[in-house]
């Protein structure tokens, strides 16, 4: 599997490493994907890198690659963001993978081996949901709201109504809320805020977890929040050119 830029892998690693220390990557002809729960079982993260994300991609037999994020991160730090990455996994020797980084002019090539782990992964079945509310907005804006409000309090409440979407945090000494309304005047789709809902709803989530989830803003200019009463929120980042996505399901806080 050859990616045109290592930056994609670096960003994916940054987006999951606070939550997941080791995970199985499932490789098949469609691409590479992973699903993992954090140790606290509060967030389920799913990553899909489709064949379209790669400059070249071949997977003759489905394989599971058990990857330890820490050494993987050390290896990836050796790659320049604009260097190509080739990942090679051999079906005859499933003890390790090889990673080769090449810069555009091929003046430099570096090769690494990463030992694979035998991870007892558990796959969760995510039911198809009829969401009560969906909000799409610029991922940078979502990130700023979450980062700011997480400083105010550890509970982040998201309320959707005809007023728009309201993010509220309450701490011991202060309370803050931010309201976003659907944008009509913005031309660029990636800068728009779109809100749809069937019934007004209000749900509370742990702000520190939501903060970790905003790391994926580096992967996509927009984010979609899907909410339903008494269900985990789905925070979805779609990468450009049908390259794939990262989705987080965060369980709510409830009385």
């Amino acid at each position: 599997a050859r990616l045109p830029r290592s930056a994609v892998l670096k960003k994916i690693l940054d987006s999951v490493k606070d939550l997941v220390k080791e995970t199985n990557w499932d490789c098949n002809e469609e691409g590479m994907s992973m699903q993992a729960l954090d140790t606290g079982r509060i967030v389920l993260v799913e990553v899909m890198l489709r064949e379209a994300a790669f400059e070249s991609y071949a997977c003759e037999v489905p394989m599971t690659l058990g990857i330890d994020m820490e050494p993987f991160g050390k290896v990836l730090r050796c790659a320049g963001g604009d260097e190509k990455v080739t990942i090679k996994a051999s079906r005859n020797d499933q003890d390790h993978i090889e990673l080769v980084f090449e810069n555009e002019e091929k003046e430099r090539m570096s090769a690494f081996e990463l030992k694979l782990m035998d991870i007892d992964g558990e796959h969760m079945a995510v039911p198809d949901a009829e969401w009560g509310a969906e909000i799409s907005m610029p991922s940078s804006e979502f990130k700023k709201i979450v980062m700011d409000l997480a400083e105010i309090g550890s509970d982040l409440t998201i309320a959707v109504s005809k007023l728009g979407v309201t993010f509220t945090a309450q701490g011991n000494n202060c309370k803050g809320s931010m309201v976003l309304q659907p944008s009509t005047a913005v031309d660029k789709k990636s800068e728009q805020v779109a809100i749809s809902f069937t019934e007004p709803l209000e749900m509370t989530f742990a702000a520190p977890y939501m903060k970790m989830i905003t790391k994926a803003a580096a992967l996509s200019s927009t984010v979609t929040l899907s909410l339903d009463e008494a269900c985990p929120i789905c925070v979805r980042y779609e990468m450009e050119d049908n390259a794939g996505h990262i989705k987080y399901y965060l369980a709510p806080k409830e009385d």
């Binding site: 729960l37 389920l44 796959h123 969760m124 079945a125 509970d155 509370t204 369980a251 806080k253 009385d255």
Partner: peptide, 14 residues
């Protein structure tokens, strides 16, 4: 704050 729910209360193992 409110108590934190777990993902496993909503999604089951495959």
């Amino acid at each position: 704050g409110k108590p934190q729910q777990s993902i496993t209360s909503f999604f089951k193992k495959k």
